[in-house]
Design a protein around this nucleic acid. Structure first.
Lengths: 351, 351
DNA sequence: TTGAAAGCGTTACCAC
DNA sequence: GTGGTAACGCTTTCAA
């Protein structure tokens, strides 16, 4: 059985390609179901289990996950979308998600939206084809199409890094604007009054825009005069954006004595540029960043910044998705939930 | 047809959950096959196509990719493994792969080995369950199990960032040791003789080890005396590792006047520490990095480094995989190929 | 140009 | 504890 006579030769393996579950079953002298049970860890007589395992090892059998998913109606995918892989805070968030989800056998489908909402929609649509169990997005801004297709999919959704007014399902994040306001107050408390802000040029980075908004609001609230805003550089904001932005700021408002940056990356670039211009930080000009990236700790001077638990956002999001998947919470019941992640202004040498 | 009488009410949709291809077919008044053809872009009468498309849109139908893959025997997955997501060179490589593969409808399954070969093997085994069309690994070191399971899978494999003596299938990379040797010569040409090297502590980062080996070889070849090696910090080497490593180096060999680092990250940390110690770079001590990361351009002083086209490694690997998948090149024919990526020593201010 | 039937490799369900 | 059978949702193949 299983043997075939072709051109007068006995061929023991009737099919090409990798071994199937039926091959394992045949070799082990059991049915496919028993093989399936061994693989799933269900109860099987020890002796049988051993024979099956032996056959699996001999053949180098690897179960086809797609077939399994189709049959059981349950995939093991989780779709995850971040604006940029190159940004260390988002890769930390992905690590957090991964740490939470991997132990449960879930496989992450990772997508990089490049801060482009249309691209996000394309990726969401494309990933939905794999029937993911749940999905994690970054930010609260999405196209109408994205929202619609997610609403229809009925799977758990978590939005990260923001606290949307009207979340699709769940959200894990913090108020970027309030964090920026806190930094303004910190600088004011240290005696700085002429405070500038280096933001990105595009409106795609909503979290960056929120920080800018917070800065503007608090400058007004504290009576610190007209905001001094430079908008320069495409998202993601990198170190290279800091120097030209600083130059622009000092070109326009030469008496500025403190600079808030939308990210530690540009803060670092700005500090290096200060040094090149012969300005001491913070004696001549203070510089503050955002994100508590590694560079803020290693730079000389160390950089005052807002610390955000990026990894924690990911692992919290992962936990929420897990419990939501487990309980099968129907989204139709609008049990929308927001979860706040802490942030702190960390006082260092630069401001 | 398709309607069911339940509790005296006519229910038009006989099943729960998301719409199926048969639902679309029913609504459009065609067979499943016609829907399938519309989706695949095969020839269908314009009027029919329009009706089908309308039904798809109305229902918000999303084809199940797993079912399609099972039926056609062809998945759309590519497995990609990198040692660390946080490292910008690997995320650049992933972007390069993504750019090459995405236009062909291939979906990347990304895994993070954390510089752990056993974890790599687990991930490879796990990803193989999704029947990927091909796989990209980082480095030339793998467990016996990894090699075996890949050999058996018979799918195209590309190893990146190294040039293995005996590649599994294809390889895209460069000689890390030769690049390091070139940097030693560069420093010697600039008049430096007392050259130290800051390496990582663990042997997991094979590319780092290769660089260290190259340094040692060239120090000997050039008659530059005993190597001055500090091994400190777990992979991935980060900015924070630079300062303590530099301290250790100067503690042990106080007259060192040039420092090569396994990465721009530690080079940056070392430079900041030099400043803290009151040492001018490069007047008192030269520092060179590796990788041409953004920080090497933005730092003051700018950092002399080895530039490697990380994105190019990814896109080249992607192209190789594509053509290998397209041609169905059987690996049994040992048509093993290695592809070299260029690197250059970039002279900047720090050395 | 379109449709019907037969799988793809697995798991759920129900017998034994 | 184990096995047979019928799906799962799609594409391939072949026929109309």
């Amino acid at each position: 059985m299983g043997n075939t006579r072709i051109n007068d030769r006995i061929v023991s393996d009737p099919h090409a390609g990798p071994p199937r579950m039926s091959d394992v079953a045949r070799i082990a002298g059991v049915s496919k179901m028993t093989v399936s049970r061994v693989l799933a860890g269900h109860s099987v007589a020890p002796a049988t289990r051993e024979r099956v395992q032996q056959a699996i090892d001999d053949l180098g059998y690897v179960a086809d996950a797609a077939a399994g998913a189709l049959s059981s109606g349950k995939s093991e995918f989780v779709a995850v979308l971040v604006p940029s892989l190159a940004s260390s805070n988002f890769s930390d968030t992905v690590r957090g998600l991964s740490a939470a989800l991997e132990p449960h056998g879930l496989q992450i489908l990772l997508g990089d939206t490049d801060y482009d909402l249309a691209r996000e929609e394309r990726l969401v649509r494309s990933m939905l084809r794999y029937q993911p169990r749940c999905i994690a997005l970054t930010g609260s801004q999405h196209t109408e199409g994205t929202r619609q297709v997610l609403e229809r999919s009925r799977i758990p959704v978590v939005e990260m890094w923001d606290l949307p007014a009207n979340p699709i399902d769940m959200a894990v994040g913090f108020s970027n604007s309030r964090a920026a306001r806190e930094m303004v107050r910190y600088l004011k408390d240290r005696g700085y009054r002429k405070i500038g802000f280096l933001a990105g040029a595009s409106d795609l980075d909503r979290r960056g825009l929120e920080r800018l908004k917070g800065y503007q609001q608090e400058m007004k609230a504290q009576g610190l005069g007209e905001p001094r805003v430079i908008r320069f550089g495409e998202s993601p904001i990198t170190m290279s954006h800091g120097a030209p932005a600083l130059d622009a700021l000092l070109g326009r408002w030469p008496d500025t004595n403190a600079v808030m940056c939308v990210s530690d990356m540009s803060a670092f670039g700005a500090i290096m540029q200060c040094h090149r211009r012969g300005l001491r930080v913070p004696a001549d000009i203070a510089v503050a960043g955002f994100g508590n990236f590694e560079v803020s700790i290693c730079c000389n001077p160390t950089i005052t910044t807002v610390s955000v638990d990026a990894y924690g956002i990911g692992s919290r999001a992962g936990q929420l998705l897990l419990s939501s998947v487990a309980s099968g919470t129907p989204r139709a019941v609008p049990e929308r939930r927001k979860f706040t992640i802490d942030y702190t202004v960390i006082s260092r040498e630069s401001a």
